[in-house]
Design a protein around this nucleic acid. Structure first.
Length: 148
DNA sequence: TTATTAAGCGAGC
DNA sequence: GCTCGCTTAATAA
C-alpha cells in the first residue's frame, strides 16, 4: 500500500494505491505533501478546472460485492459535464425498483472524483449526499459547468 | 432467518 | 411546498 498526500483546491487529499490500482481517496484536514504520483497530478488538474479523463485509471475493487462494483462501474460511464439520477443508475443495471439501494452503494464509494458519484443527484436537481459533504459536491458540479 | 440500514422517488394533499 | 409509503441487497444478530 502506497500513500501519497497532496494539496488541492478543496484541501489536502490522501491517495492510497495498491498493486491492483487506486484503493481509496480521502480528504484530510492537515498534512504535508509527500511526493507525487501521476494520478495525484490528474486529480489536482481536474480540481483546478481542467477536463481530465479518469476512465483508464485502474481501481482496486477489493471489498466490494459484485453488484456494488457493477453500480460503481456504471457511474464511471457518466460523461464529464453531465448528471444522472439514482433511478437512472438502477435501471441501467437492471434494478427496476431497487434504486434506493444505489444510495447505499455510493455511500460505500472509497474513491470520489475518480468514480464521479458527485454526478448522481436527485431527479429534481437537489443534491443528495456526498462522502466529503454537500459543499464539495456542489463545487465539483459547478466545476463541470452544471448549474443547479 | 429476521431485523436493520442507505446519499431516492412519486403520489397526494 | 410538505408528508407518506415503498424497494432492494448487504450486513449483523
Amino acid at each position: 500500500m502506497e500513500e501519497i498526500i497532496f494539496y488541492s483546491p478543496i484541501g489536502y487529499l490522501l491517495l492510497q494505491i495498491t498493486k491492483r490500482g487506486i484503493y481509496a481517496v480521502k480528504k484530510i484536514e492537515k498534512g504535508e505533501t509527500t511526493g507525487s504520483h501521476p494520478v495525484a497530478e490528474m486529480i489536482k488538474r481536474y480540481l483546478e478546472g481542467e477536463k481530465v479523463d479518469f476512465a483508464k485509471i485502474p481501481i482496486d475493487w477489493s471489498g466490494y460485492s459484485p453488484l456494488q462494483k457493477k453500480v460503481l462501474e456504471k457511474v464511471r460511464e457518466v460523461p464529464y459535464g453531465e448528471w444522472r439520477s439514482y433511478s437512472w443508475v438502477g435501471k441501467e443495471i437492471g434494478l427496476n425498483y431497487g434504486w434506493r439501494y444505489i444510495g447505499k452503494v455510493l455511500s460505500l464509494n472509497r474513491t470520489p472524483i475518480i468514480i464521479p458519484c458527485h454526478r448522481i443527484i436527485y431527479k429534481n436537481k437537489n443534491l443528495g449526499g456526498f462522502t466529503w459533504g454537500k459543499e464539495v459536491k456542489k463545487f465539483l458540479l459547478e466545476l463541470e459547468g452544471i448549474s443547479l
